[in-house]
Write a protein that binds this DNA or RNA. Structure first.
Lengths: 338, 338
DNA sequence: CGGCACTGTCGAAGCGCTTCGACGACCGTG
DNA sequence: CACGGTCGTCGAAGCGCTTCGACAGTGCCG
């Protein structure tokens, strides 16, 4: 493995000159630069990451703290991860993968030992214990999510409250007045994952503003959970004409159930869902949906981290505007039925 | 950020002594050790990873090269990743996440710049271009998969050929004689992902040995693909009584299709599938299946990497034995129907 | 009781890079 | 023509750790 000294010798310059060719931090004549680059190419020189980190106190590595549970939402998590890795590479950074399970200790380990320049966390809880730990680190961090007290920490996410408003607005504009929310599983609420709460409060707010009759219900996973949830909604809100579904895994059983009980989508029940685009399009009925823009969020998180590292200004709370795509699962209700 | 010198001063010893306390490579008196540890705890000292890597030529980081495509098999990939990260942490290593997209260049980048001690790759193709590149690296690598020429590189995977044999054996033992294989999508075959081929040849082999009438078919994603595939199988093998399904995403539409056409599982058609356990159990009919032991494979891959790093002997090809779990989607055929 | 093998600790070198200050060469300016 | 300012390059220090050789002290053997 050749070192910078080998390169310097081969090019007939000093090691520092090679370093400056590499970093561009000082002017180097075109001629010298060419000789150095030739030597680098010929020897196949790659700077030693550890040495570099030691000398420059920069690792060019980002930590990505992901929930590696094997349950729901795996595809979404994967999309975030993909976006983060891709964006990081575009900024010449690599990604160290940590699990949420390691908790605070994991963050401190990689931060204190200077393995990473910044951290990106997903799956934040409302009063996440990791937040105070993050504040103590010298490395900046970016959250994908919006915990309760996030002062001084950059947050990026879809604006779930706006998404709920948009979903209800869309249904209301089509004449729906009685609308049920099929929410995430109780486990998600219990974990206080913030997007669930934010969506719910947006929903309730919009419901009041638009003077709708709505009812909201968490939904246990599995066909049985969906059956119970739907039964509850029907019982509490007879004549419901539309459902907002904020629960990917419930979608399929829900559609099965509706079909089995002879309720057609959208003729008898309209549906607007919030989920990744490909989930919405892969259902037996393609669904009008609000996309979870995992790619954009992940990319933005990385970009925010880069800005922080460069000492540039950042907006500390960036909630991406939702965008609803019509796919025909929402039907106009004629005034007589309202 | 305190350094080893700060600790040394606080404990009244030399830096090298602190280092030896940390590494245990030389005997240190209990008394001194206690003093040093107290100082470490008090100052909150964490060794600088870069400095360590530079001095010791060890990074305690593993590269995990994952296919970050957002299509099928995402849950399986996630399970592998989870297992790898967890196992790596158990051996005091961290995981750097690379995408398959970076190809050979990515491997060389992290290896040449000494960011990692070893590499673990998933989703290998039959004549994977990365294999020759891996051979040139000074770091050892472990493959999850079994490409054509893997001499000198450790490989870990499920024994897909044996899995196919086991699936067919199970069906044959229940009296089935006419059996169709619903294979992965043509895209998977085209990519020459090795597990598809291995499963297929095991299937054909066992079919011949057991003197079965079988037909095999790739299966395009989506309901339409499944319909075509099933139609082809029915046409080529009238009176088929059982299906082996090696295609997770086809399972759901396949079951829907069978139900819609009045063929009950297992009364009219028996099914054995190979997929992650949770997929098999989350179907409307719980399916007799052969698990893809992502957790075991991932853990074994890490363990193999550790052995290689320690200079211990390893088996260069480890194919895990499949295990079939009965869940009632395979029915005994009475001799009269055979 | 001299010599030897440990045991426990230290000092210094060195890992490969970045960065700062220095300095000669060269330019334009007054 | 002398002077200040750039430009291009070099040398050396230093980042924080590991590791090797050295060495004082101790216990044991012959």
């Amino acid at each position: 493995m050749p070192t910078i000294n080998d390169v310097a010798r081969a090019a007939g310059v000093s090691p520092s000159t090679v370093s400056y060719v590499l970093s561009g931090r000082r002017p180097i004549s075109a001629e010298t630069r060419a000789r150095v680059q030739a030597a680098i190419a010929e020897l196949g020189f790659h700077p030693h990451a550890g040495a570099r980190a030691l000398a420059s106190s920069k690792t060019n590595v980002l930590a990505l703290v992901a929930p590696l549970r094997v349950d729901v939402n795996v595809p979404v998590i994967m999309q975030f991860a993909t976006a983060v890795v891709t964006a990081a590479r575009a900024h010449n950074h690599d990604v160290l993968l940590l699990t949420k399970d390691e908790g605070t200790a994991g963050l401190e380990r990689v931060a204190h030992s200077t393995m990473v320049d910044a951290l990106i966390l997903m799956d934040l809880e409302r009063d996440d214990l990791r937040i105070p730990a993050l504040r103590r680190l010298k490395q900046p961090s970016v959250l994908i999510g919006l915990p309760a007290d996030h002062t001084g920490i950059a947050c990026v996410d879809l604006d779930f409250a706006a998404a709920a408003r948009e979903a209800l607005g869309h249904l209301a504009a089509h004449g729906h007045r009685r609308i049920g929310l099929v929410g995430p599983s109780p486990a998600v609420y219990k974990r206080q994952t913030t997007y669930a709460d934010r969506f719910l409060s947006g929903f309730l707010e919009a419901s009041a503003e638009l003077e709708l009759r709505t009812v909201t219900h968490p939904c246990e996973p599995g066909a049985a959970g969906v059956r119970d949830c739907l039964a509850d909604i029907d019982a509490q809100l007879p004549g419901v004409t539309a459902l907002v579904v904020h629960n990917e895994e419930a979608l399929r059983p829900l559609l099965d159930l509706l079909r089995a009980s002879g309720r057609r989508v959208p003729e008898d029940v309209s549906i607007v869902t919030i989920c990744p685009r490909d989930v919405a399009t892969s259902m037996p009925v393609t669904l009008t949906s609000i996309d979870i823009p995992a790619h954009d969020v992940g990319t933005l998180a990385v970009e925010t981290a880069m800005r922080l590292l460069d000492g540039r200004r950042v907006e500390y709370t960036r909630l991406l505007a939702p965008s609803l795509v019509e796919r025909g699962s929402c039907r106009e209700i004629s005034p007589s039925h309202r």
